[in-house]
Nucleic acid binder design. Sequence first.
DNA 1: AGAGGTTACGGGCAGCGTAAGGATC
DNA 2: GATCCTTACGCTGCCCGTAACCTCT
Lengths: 292, 292
Amino acid sequence: MTFDQLKTFYWVARLGGFRKASDHLGLSQPAVSTRIGTLEAELGVAILERTTKGVTLTKQGALLLGYAEQMLFVQEEIVKRVANPSEIEGLFRIGSSETIAQAWLPDFLKAFGKEYPRVSIDLTVDISGNLRNSLLQQDIDLAFLMGPVSEFTVENIALPKFHLHWYKAKGSGTVDLNTKPVISYAAKTRPHRELMAELSRRVGPNVRVYSSASLSASLQMIAAGIAVGPYPQALASGLLALGQIEEFDPGFQPTALEFTASYLGEPRSVLAERGGEIAKEIAAAWDRTQDL
Amino acid sequence: MTFDQLKTFYWVARLGGFRKASDHLGLSQPAVSTRIGTLEAELGVAILERTTKGVTLTKQGALLLGYAEQMLFVQEEIVKRVANPSEIEGLFRIGSSETIAQAWLPDFLKAFGKEYPRVSIDLTVDISGNLRNSLLQQDIDLAFLMGPVSEFTVENIALPKFHLHWYKAKGSGTVDLNTKPVISYAAKTRPHRELMAELSRRVGPNVRVYSSASLSASLQMIAAGIAVGPYPQALASGLLALGQIEEFDPGFQPTALEFTASYLGEPRSVLAERGGEIAKEIAAAWDRTQDL
DNA sequence: AGAGGTTACGGGCAGCGTAAGGATC
DNA sequence: GATCCTTACGCTGCCCGTAACCTCT
């Protein structure tokens, strides 16, 4: 009996198939067959029922699953409590929304890389909705997104809010939202939907809302006088300092953006847990520098 | 990290040296070095302090030991609860006192072999004192001896008592213990010592006591009229039926022999635990057949 | 035909034992 | 020198991936 066998069994049971488990574990499907087959041969009992569509647990399999989970838990504990972080190796997949990427993500990556120098990082920047799906499908290990993710399997760590301010091109005079388009976050994002609703109610049906998946592109458009829009002050500070944009008050302020560091609680991952902690610290520190 | 590494670490920590662990695990000493070395390299921390005389645990090592014990415990649970007994392989070392060997040990070996057909058995017959030492030194896994073994690490399962009856050669007339020697269990055994004390008190200083390490040889001597002695009825029944010996009453009866199935509680062994249970069942069944 | 798992087979590498090499008393 | 553990090195066997195969819908 080996950890690999138990881990493989765990994932086959959890994902309901050899193929899915092999994808998740980065193995060929026959390798998963071999591991399960060997484990069953050693135990002398069948632990999985092979049906035409996927697999189900046998009675002994259900029993074993509990022990396997316990094993993997203890193993994680060892890595977490006993091992030297600088020796941990592997691949860690981070997903981030662009706002975070533009804010403190570089600081986070620096800190994380310092604590886990042997871990490779795979970074994806996408909108929160996609990150949420990726997280639940276990395509990423840790996500910085507009959360929380309310699945009960997901751990959410609250991160500092981003307050939104309205910006327009410097010296562009009074803004009439009936004529000047509003540019905002990508469609299908929560801030975008909220902004749409709020503008329809306050300004009326003539309002035009652009959406852009790129924050920096959006701000460039604002600087060019093409549109106006609400953005986190921290991200606008560059263009603000250059005198290309300025703040204005259209009479209301969208609700602040709330982010979380989110990861699956099960199976446990030291890197995800610690990554969430680091993110909280780094984000808080970054947030304090923005209060000036 | 592998089970082998953790198990090796456990035994090195428990026995206080690489060489001792290698002996216990049936490995070369360098193999133990490699396992520990690899484990330390993977964790990135030293877990053992090598001193000139043996080894001691580092801080992390002490922490790891707890987790390792937990792992090995869960692994034993899996083998015990999930695995099919008929698939369990290995070597199982049994030590038995001769009384048991002459009584129900064959029945036990048959039952054990049926439940664990792949397990090789190594049988030693010796006096209880030696079995006790062998057990504590882990040279045997399960002992049937005059117990209990009162070390706190040892589990003892009470087995049916053997009541002693006095036997003499058939038709040899009245027995005078002042002239007829008494033959009994081997010197350095509890029944021998008790018998000596009792005879000195009741019969006087003239009594002669022979001792024999072989029960069947002793009974042959009784049948030959050379001596008399107290023996379990069950073991005497053969010669009794042949009419070579007969029971008599010298006025007192030695206390019954009490046996236990004893094994080390730590580390856990499915085979020893289950072996003890089987022994209890088999011995009880055997005992009932003797009541006739 | 396609989705699922199994069987067959060649190759790479982890881990073993033997043998030699420190270190410390 | 005796007692430990480590290092060096050749070898074996395990386990992986590729490829072909089987079964059921």
